[in-house]
């Protein structure tokens, strides 16, 4: 079996796109979380099947992952259509039909009130706060102080691959782990070199949530999106830590629920 079908994408390319899709509540890749059950490639048509930790995972979150998976895979030039199948979920019928027939959330779930965008925006903002914690930790470790950090602007970062169009590709894998980025601090009076990955991950979400878009804007923000007052630096940083603990705790619950379900299914299979 050849990996590559005539005129179709490679399996690796599909996985790479799926890797960009996150569980919005955990801010972790659905590939890393092992939600993907199968990828089938038939020429320009790709089918992806996935399962969530429990049948009761929020339908809104399930919907976001299904739509994102579809859109990411279809962004490959070699893909004409992506068919997404969610299994073992209490709303799999509505979600699978909605995503593959390209309905809106409100059309797929007539009894839901409104759309998922507000929920998505809130989770993106939490992901930004959690990522900010890692980025700021990196800068603290490099010896920058609070006053310097809160004053940094987008333009103070210089790396060949940090730009509006490349941050996404940077986030995709571990390849950038040993790359560094230069930071020009204190009105560009000195520069330090720090690991690029935490900063790129932060920038990606900061752009997605539109808290930072212009090069002279302050890079780091309170959870409410405001520039950070140096006096409240510690508190804001602690809130970033808290956002991380919240996500990883929920991750612990999801992991546990998935293990419980798997062992129950195994037991049923043994009977």
């Amino acid at each position: 079996m050849s990996e590559r079908m005539p005129d179709g994408p490679t399996r690796a390319a599909v996985r790479d796109r799926l890797d960009r899709v996150t569980d919005p509540e955990l801010d972790r890749s659905i590939v890393d979380l092992e939600y993907i059950d199968s990828i089938e490639i038939d020429g320009e048509h790709v089918s992806v099947a996935f399962t969530l930790p429990t049948a009761w995972c929020s339908p809104a979150f399930a919907w976001m992952m299904a739509v994102d998976a579809r859109d990411e895979v279809e962004s490959l030039p070699a893909v004409e259509t992506a068919r997404i199948t969610l299994a073992e979920h209490m709303h799999e019928t509505e979600i699978n039909r909605g995503v593959n027939e390209r309905l809106s959330f409100a059309e797929a779930f007539p009894d839901a009130d409104g759309d998922v965008e507000a929920v998505r925006a809130e989770l993106d903002e939490k992901a930004r706060i959690a990522r900010q914690y890692d980025a700021v930790e990196t800068l603290l470790e490099a010896g920058l102080d609070a006053e310097t950090i809160v004053d940094l602007r987008l333009r103070d970062f210089e790396a060949a691959d940090i730009g509006p169009n490349t941050a996404q590709s940077g986030s995709a894998g571990a390849a950038i782990d040993d790359e560094t980025v230069a930071i020009y601090a204190a009105d560009r009076s000195f520069a330090v070199s720090v690991p690029a990955a935490p900063l790129e991950r932060y920038l990606e979400k900061a752009r997605e949530t539109a808290v930072v878009s212009e090069s002279d804007e302050k890079l780091f923000r309170t959870p409410e999106g405001e520039p950070i007052d140096p006096e409240s630096f510690d508190l804001v940083h602690q809130r970033g830590r808290l956002a991380q603990v919240n996500m990883s705790s929920q991750g612990g619950i999801c992991d546990g629920l998935r293990e419980a379900r798997e062992s129950r299914l195994e037991k049923t299979a043994d009977d």
Partner: peptide, 10 residues
């Protein structure tokens, strides 16, 4: 607790 329902509103 965890979000189950309603579908979209938290």
């Amino acid at each position: 607790g965890p979000t189950i329902r309603p579908l979209n509103r938290d």
